[in-house]
């Protein structure tokens, strides 16, 4: 959006906008250009962030952790005892995991993560949160009627399954260790990692 002109002319700073640019997009660009002029920001910083979060920081990292926990019971024990320390083996970048707590689903216990006050999320293992995680509907409802919300999102749980909702209110970040699907016991760790979804690690889907 920022690099295109719509041909209607009169562009300052080399930018003109399509009509569909949102007010916040335009204002962000205005502020960005002022910060660049003051030497507080470089346009290339933004490009680096895009590449970092497209290519290196994302749920593929959490999926590796889950797959290892499924293959290696000793690692699983370490992970559940001290998630922060256990994921150091992987040398992930991306922040927001000064303290990571991993909570394990069991046959009759289901875990789900939210941040009602903000949109806290373990970036180093899951990347940036999906839009719905940050929207008012999820943040308001998942603490109050999780069974109903999960069913609406496609995860109908048996009525006797206990639900544990983790509302990340301080700097502790949470990730769900889903149950390993039946029939995947012979898969390799990397095959398993390929089938672990982001939504399963937030707790709104099965693995």
């Amino acid at each position: 959006m920022t690099d295109k002109t719509d041909g209607t002319g009169d562009s300052h700073h080399g930018h003109a906008h399509h009509h569909e640019s949102s007010p916040q997009a335009i204002r962000a660009e205005a502020l960005e250009s002022l910060l660049i002029e003051r030497g507080l920001l470089k346009a290339s910083d933004v490009d680096h962030v895009i590449v970092q979060y497209e290519e290196r920081v994302g749920p593929m990292n959490g999926a590796k952790v889950v797959a290892r926990a499924w293959k290696d019971p000793a690692f699983k024990t370490r992970l559940l005892n001290d998630g922060t320390k256990a994921i150091q083996d992987f040398k992930f970048e991306g922040g927001q995991t000064e303290k990571l707590v991993v909570v394990a689903n069991e046959s009759n216990i289901h875990n789900v993560v939210v941040c009602t006050l903000c949109s806290c999320y373990p970036w180093a293992v899951l990347g940036l949160p999906p839009k719905w995680y940050k929207d008012p509907a999820y943040r308001s409802r998942i603490v109050r009627e999780p069974r109903k919300v999960l069913a609406e999102m496609g995860l109908a749980l048996p009525s006797d399954t206990e639900i544990k909702v983790w509302d990340s209110s301080a700097e502790v970040r949470y990730m769900v260790l889903p149950e390993q699907p039946a029939g995947t016991e012979n898969m390799t760790e990397s095959e398993l990692a390929n089938r672990v979804s982001r939504d399963a690690m937030i707790g709104v889907a099965h693995a």
């Binding site: 999906p130 719905w132 308001s140 409802r141 109050r144 999102m153």
Partner: peptide, 20 residues
């Protein structure tokens, strides 16, 4: 401070492939 507030509708999961 949204926890427990009502009236915000259904969760819209959008496109699974949506970019960051």
């Amino acid at each position: 401070d949204l926890g427990g507030k009502q009236g915000h509708g259904k969760v819209d999961k959008g496109q699974p492939s949506a970019r960051n």
